[in-house]
C-alpha cells in the first residue's frame, strides 16, 4: 500500500519514542481563570510521541479545562507548543488543523449522518472547494482503514445516532485518526462503557498511542493501571505529581488528595 498507514507497529511506552525526532506537546505555565477563579493554575505538561499519558485527579481538578484550553475552546494564558508551533491563542478550527484532535465526555458524533459520512467529514478539512462541491464517490483509504481499526466496517451505512454508546466513542476515535491528528486528547473515553467495551477501548488506545501524542482524561483507576504508560495527577488546577502509575500511587501528596492510604482507589466518577 502506498498510502501511509494509520497504525505503525509498536507499543506506547513511558517517555515515548526513543529514536528519530519524536513529536511533542509542551505545555508551560498554562492558566485558565473563570471570573477570577483559577480553574487551571500554572500547569506544565510534557508528552512525547509514543507515550500514553493519563490525566487523573479528583472532580473539579481542571482536567477537562486543560484540554479545553489546549484546543482553544476556553481562553488561557501560558504556552502550548506542538513540536515547535505555538498553538495557544488560535481559533478552535485552526488548532484542529495543526493536528490537535479531541473527543468529548459525551460522544458527539453527527447523529443524522452515517458512520461513513462522519468519517468522511472528519477526513476532509483539507479539501479544496471543488472537491467539496462534488459528490462523495469513493471511500478514502484512510477512512477504510479507520473503519477496520475501530471495528465498525460492518456499520458504514448506519446512522451514527443509532450506534451503541461504545461504538459512538469508537467512531469519535476513528474520526480523530482520519483527521490526521498527532495529538489526541481524549476526555473520559470509557465513561459509561461495559466491561468488554472498556477492554476493547484500552487495546484500541494502546494501538493508536504508539505513534501519537496521547493524553487521556480518566477516572477509572483500574483502567489507568492497565493502560497508562505515564500519569499526571491534577488537583485544584495544579500538577500534583507525575510519573509512572506506581510512582504516582506511592506519592504521599497524591494519597492525601485521594483521602485513602490505599492510593487512588477513591477516585470514582
Amino acid at each position: 500500500m502506498t498510502t501511509p498507514t494509520l497504525l505503525p507497529d509498536g507499543e506506547p511506552r513511558a517517555g515515548g519514542l526513543r529514536h528519530g525526532r519524536p513529536k511533542y506537546l509542551e505545555v508551560r505555565g498554562l492558566s485558565v481563570s473563570f471570573d477570577g477563579f483559577l480553574a487551571v493554575d500554572n500547569v506544565n505538561l510534557d508528552v512525547v510521541q509514543g507515550d500514553l499519558r493519563f490525566l487523573i485527579g479528583p472532580n473539579g481538578a481542571g482536567k477537562t479545562t486543560v484540554i479545553d484550553a489546549i484546543t482553544g475552546l476556553v481562553p488561557a494564558t501560558g504556552s502550548v507548543n506542538h513540536t515547535g508551533t505555538e498553538i495557544l491563542g488560535r481559533k478552535v478550527h485552526q488548532v484542529a488543523r495543526l493536528g490537535v484532535g479531541r473527543t468529548f465526555q459525551t460522544a458527539s458524533v453527527f447523529e443524522n449522518l452515517s458512520v461513513l459520512q462522519n468519517l468522511d467529514i472528519a477526513a476532509g478539512a483539507g479539501r479544496g472547494p471543488l472537491r467539496m462541491l462534488r459528490r462523495r464517490k469513493t471511500v478514502d483509504p484512510a477512512v477504510e482503514e479507520a473503519l477496520e481499526i475501530i471495528g465498525l466496517e460492518g456499520a458504514t451505512g448506519k446512522m451514527a445516532g443509532i450506534l451503541a454508546h461504545g461504538q459512538k466513542q469508537w467512531l469519535e476515535i476513528g474520526m480523530l485518526l482520519v483527521q490526521n491528528s498527532d495529538v489526541l486528547l481524549l476526555d473520559e473515553p470509557i465513561a459509561g462503557m461495559s466491561q468488554d467495551e472498556r477492554g476493547e477501548t484500552g487495546e484500541l488506545l494502546r494501538r493508536i498511542a504508539a505513534s501519537r501524542i496521547t493524553v487521556v482524561v480518566e477516572h477509572d483507576m483500574d483502567f489507568v493501571r492497565e493502560y497508562a504508560t505515564s500519569v499526571t495527577v491534577l488537583a485544584a488546577g495544579k500538577v500534583l505529581s507525575e510519573g509512572s502509575v506506581a510512582q504516582v500511587q506511592a506519592d504521599k501528596k497524591v494519597q492525601d488528595v485521594y483521602l485513602g492510604s490505599s492510593g487512588v482507589e477513591a477516585a470514582g466518577a
Binding site: H93, A96, N112, I121, G126, Q179
Partner: peptide, 19 residues
C-alpha cells in the same frame, strides 16, 4: 453533508478543522 453536520453540531465541526 458537512452542512448537515454544521446544522446538528456546529461546535463539533470546529474541532475537525472546519470554520
Amino acid at each position: 453533508e458537512l452542512l448537515v453536520a454544521v446544522r446538528d453540531q456546529e461546535e463539533r465541526v470546529r474541532f475537525l478543522g472546519y470554520d
